[in-house]
Design a protein around this nucleic acid. Structure first.
Lengths: 342, 342
DNA sequence: GCTCGACATGGTAGCGCTACCATTTGTCTG
DNA sequence: CAGACAAATGGTAGCGCTACCATGTCGAGC
């Protein structure tokens, strides 16, 4: 009658090792670790001492299995290298670093199908919460989110009909505000240059169009877009295309700051004076916008805050006090700079 | 005598539901899913049909508990927003997207203690593999890696004494090569500008210093560094500081491309001719380096490949055929451009 | 015909933890 | 001082899966 002790486990201490050492029941150890308030001061001390001495670390897999709930935040973003999402993710990490929650990031590559697949994978773990970028999920993905059985926060946008909660801002308004700024500065032949053209870019384009139409200045040939992923070099190329199409262009609203920077560099190369001959507005307001020469006007978005706020809302919902405000609009801020100061 | 069926689980189908439906034992379902070759054609078809019909998805937590091994890659990087690590992580994701492995990223914030803490957390899950940035772990972290019981790949550097496997390149050589290039182009008062100054930056600085000393041109006052995180605007500031200290500076080797871009912008602002009056070399060769005006010489590093290669090595080790080459040097490539062409 | 081993399948017993319920003890009420 | 009730602790029975071992079947080899 030998005890088969630790058939597979690498001999790591388990909760009953701790319990034995502390002279208590296993369940009390479990409680001492998760709800310290429910265990008497004395025992708690004893237990923590035993934990320390044995170097006990709870097994999150066993925990998840027994409680039917993993201490994991699932995060779905379309890109990892895009600075915007990197900032959001950083906000999420920073807000969660002192919590017991682990983070699992999925990269959807801007694909609805991939998003659906990842949602399936993430859902099978019974995560504590899900944070997903965007509001344009496929019907299948939306159903998965609705049945996830955990708080869900959609991020980056605003809208009336979130799955559960929503934090972001209006890309349409951002695009319109940027364009109106150029109009106010006196630019007339204002182009739109955009890469990737995901749903958010589309909404910024729609905002641009609304502003241009309101001014009676919209022309389809002012719009230059591509589904290719955004980059500084692409910005330069697209601007050249745009100028070839419309040589009288006197301003551009760029889909994002990378594109804007590419446009600025092309202006330097082509000896086009910014802001005199060409006005430039970017989107997101990365650090470099204020440093470039000339500095570039941009629409500042609160990316890091979107991450922290999404986590805060999810944590509140987990704790049982779901925020009454299910949709949070963090807005944006136009940062006028030299590139439009003529 | 009611059956307590699914006391807690959200009523999701389990492996025995599938087994019952397919008319086989649970263990056969398990095998059909993990080692299809060991189950007869007939049963396999039946089982997969049942899986489909019920919408069965295996519970990774239960799986991990039973097999004492989670299908998780733990990845530890010092920053999520730094483009360099974002690219590495992208490589890791892309290489793992068709595998059953999930990815868990930890952000160490350049802190050895935080790295140690995260290693503890990650280790408790019994991950399939660990990928960690750098070779300068604390003794405690190194011990945790050695006892992780899974393949470990250190990345971003080369060295003689990896914990297990290592993929990267020599930052010292990179720094020296960049500096030698400036020297060859005729620059003499070459400054070093660096932010953050993590171990890799330190090695690049050491490479710079070696090259300058070999040329008999090293001076401590040519070096301008700060522990502050890197950014374009910081690059501009540091360059101003450097010029104030050493007005005769005629070239700079920048710790990274952000700093280099900041230097370039400051040159524009101060009407310093690049490359005539000031030569600039960056590090990493981000896309924008080739687009800027003038384009900036940089040291191209193979970040994405570091990620894919690290995963390939880990997967090989998991499969039992540990690569004979435990240390892989992916090298780097100097990209000479206008910023040093005088 | 019989043994042997390869192959296919299944049963049993956990993996390490927590939900649920039971028990004990102490404290407060009337 | 009985009764009620809260607080502290423990036992039992799983969570859903897989490692391990057992069983059955079949054809090859003697």
């Amino acid at each position: 009658m030998t005890k088969p002790r630790s058939r597979r486990g690498g001999g790591r201490p388990t909760i009953s090792d701790v319990a034995r050492k502390a002279g208590v029941g296993a369940i009390t150890v479990s409680r001492a670790l998760r709800e310290p308030g429910r265990v008497s001061e004395d025992l708690r001390r004893q237990i923590l001492a035993a934990v320390d001495e044995l170097g006990y670390v709870p097994d999150p897999n066993a925990r998840a299995l027994a409680s039917a709930r993993a201490e994991v935040f699932g995060v779905l973003v379309p890109s990892l290298t895009n600075n915007v999402f990197a900032e959001v993710v950083r906000g999420i990490y920073d807000s969660l670093s002192d919590s017991p929650f682990r983070i699992q990031i999925g990269n959807t590559h801007y694909s609805g199908l991939e998003e659906e697949r990842l949602l399936q994978v993430f859902g099978s773990q019974r995560p504590a919460a899900l944070i997903v970028a965007g509001i344009d999920q496929t019907p299948g993905a939306r159903r998965l989110l609705e049945n996830a059985g955990c708080p869900v926060v959609q991020i980056m946008e605003t809208g009336a009909d979130p799955v559960d909660m929503l934090v972001g801002f209006s890309h349409f308004d951002g695009g319109r505000t940027a364009t109106e700024h150029l109009l106010r500065a006196g630019y007339r032949k204002i182009g739109f240059i955009g890469a990737r053209m995901d749903p958010r870019s589309q909404r910024r384009l729609a905002g641009y169009r609304a502003a241009m139409e309101a001014a009676g200045l919209f022309e389809p040939r002012l719009v230059t877009t591509t589904p290719v992923p955004s980059s500084v070099s692409l910005g330069r190329e697209l601007f050249r295309d745009a100028l070839a199409k419309m040589p009288t262009t006197d301003g551009v609203f760029c889909n994002n700051d990378d594109i804007a920077l590419g446009v600025l560099f092309e202006c330097h190369r082509a000896s086009l004076d910014v802001p005199k001959q060409i006005g430039i507005v970017g989107f997101n307001d990365l650090d470099m916008m204020q440093v470039s020469f000339p500095s570039i006007t941009s629409v500042r978005t609160h990316r890091y805050e979107i991450g922290t706020r999404a986590v805060a809302m999810a944590l509140a919902a987990i704790a049982g006090n779901r925020p009454e405000q299910r949709v949070v609009d963090l807005g944006f801020e136009l940062m006028p700079r030299e590139s439009t100061a003529r």
